[in-house]
Amino acid sequence: MTDHGHSPASTVDVAPTSQESSPDKLAWRRFLKNPVAVIGVLALLITVLASVLAPVISPYPPNAIDLGNVRQPPSADHLLGTDSTGRDVFSRLLAGGQISLMVGFLAALMAVAIGTLAGVVAGWFGGIVDGIISRIIDIMLSVPAVLVIIVLAGVIGPSVPMLVVVIAGLAWPTPARIARGVVLSLREEEFVQAARALGSRTGFIIFRHLVPGVLPPIVVSATLLVAEAVLLESSLSFLGAGVQPPESSWGNMLNEAQSLTVLSSMPWLWVPAGLMIAVTVLSAMAVGDGVRDAIDPRKNN
């Protein structure tokens, strides 16, 4: 093709100026440019690491009762004080993190995976498939979540896997609805028509054209779902249908703060757990925003 070196067309072409770099590297660079997202990642990393390493760094066993040292304010011995049965709050915070983070992230991940797939399939195939999936979504959205879980907890017995599955099972309609809506408009886009016209397989169209287009709003809803799941776990544990004592979670640590005296004069019993929930949720949202922008190649400039 060397004889086309100075074609008429070359007068119109001006080479884009940006230097060569792989798309993945560019995406990573876009992510690192967002300071809030980077702080979010660091905060999440520290939280996760601390929870995973809980057995090593905990000064006390999280469930060890010491009735001689009840509701002690923070001191050198007990960094965050002790609770009403003399257990070390710091150790319980680390141990609780394991459960809360696991429930939050696993449930959100499952919900997003199920929801995205269901929504994309409903939006793409339309017709009767869409009808069935959409009616299921409507039914799920009209079910009172907390009641269902309490009933299930009563029937199967409360446990952490049960919590994850039930929260995911109740949360997937939200991402499914978002995905369906986006796919409904994407499928009319010319590049999807082009893919059909050139004979691409349905699987290829779904995973290479539709899912990447659906991801940005889904990532945002996923971060909200993490928040929702952590909070739902908290409220269920509070109601006694979630994590069972003596095991700790951030949610049932908040149970301590049921009386006004605790609220006003013993903040070390509830502030750390509340703070950790807030930090986790905020970090997840920041990371979600960062990921959403990073996976959009048009955000380069």
């Binding site: 798309p23 886009e189 010319e190 590049f191 028509q193 082009a194 893919a195 050139l198 004979g199 691409s200 397989r201 290829f204 290479r208 054209h209 990447p212 287009g213 996976i295 959009d296 190649p297 048009r298």
Partner: peptide
């Protein structure tokens, strides 16, 4: 609009090859 904005030029052109 007929090229997917999230795919590279190479991926766009390769799509028929992947399909057939």
């Amino acid at each position: 609009s007929s090229l997917n904005p999230r795919m590279t030029i190479g991926e766009c052109i390769a799509e028929p090859l992947v399909a057939h």
